[in-house]
Simulated scan of single mutants.
Amino acid sequence: MATFADVRTTLGQLVQGRDIPRMKITHGGDAFSWDTAEELRKAVAVIFGTTYQLIDPALVGNGRADETYLVQVLMGPIEDQDIPRMPFRGPFASADQIKVIRDWINDGARDDGVT
């Protein structure tokens, strides 16, 4: 079972070396965060002027993680919305990294230590 610590580490690896404050400003300010599991569950991203909820609560804990915007944009591109695969220009998530995020969402997107 993937933990939030695993997810946070994975997302950190994907944006390593990037200007995080600038990235937050570009993608929605304080609403674009994954410092805690709660923040990630509530996170939104603004892409090309449109706001997307990264993890729709209706898709958590029921095997529907692949339908979340977070997983879709990491697997990307989302061609019908003309959105490139993220992080923009890579490095892109490996299948194993996406599995960590998918498993965490499918298992309920819980805080570590909460059952």
Rank of each mutant, 00 (worst) to 15 (best):
47 I>L: 15
20 I>Q: 10
61 G>L: 05
82 D>R: 11
66 D>I: 11
58 A>K: 13
57 P>H: 01
64 R>Q: 15
68 T>Q: 04
6 D>F: 07
71 V>G: 00
17 G>F: 07
60 V>R: 10
48 F>S: 15
37 A>N: 04
8 R>A: 15
19 D>E: 09
6 D>R: 09
77 P>V: 01
44 V>M: 06
80 D>R: 05
53 Q>W: 04
5 A>C: 05
14 L>R: 09
6 D>M: 06
62 N>V: 09
47 I>C: 11
106 N>D: 15
106 N>W: 11
70 L>S: 08
82 D>E: 03
14 L>Q: 12
85 R>I: 10
28 G>A: 00
41 R>V: 06
13 Q>N: 14
11 L>E: 11
3 T>S: 15
30 D>V: 13
77 P>E: 02
110 R>W: 04
99 K>I: 03
73 V>M: 10
2 A>P: 15
97 Q>W: 13
66 D>E: 15
108 G>R: 10
115 T>V: 06
38 E>K: 05
17 G>P: 12
59 L>N: 03
2 A>K: 06
103 D>E: 14
58 A>I: 00
49 G>Y: 07
7 V>Y: 05
75 M>F: 01
95 A>I: 12
61 G>M: 08
76 G>Q: 01
95 A>D: 11
23 M>C: 12
80 D>Y: 05
17 G>R: 11
29 G>K: 03
84 P>C: 01
44 V>C: 01
55 I>V: 14
86 M>S: 05
10 T>Y: 10
4 F>P: 14
28 G>D: 05
34 W>Y: 03
47 I>G: 00
9 T>F: 08
112 D>F: 03
44 V>T: 15
13 Q>C: 06
50 T>C: 10
61 G>E: 05
28 G>I: 01
22 R>M: 09
5 A>R: 07
107 D>F: 04
68 T>V: 08
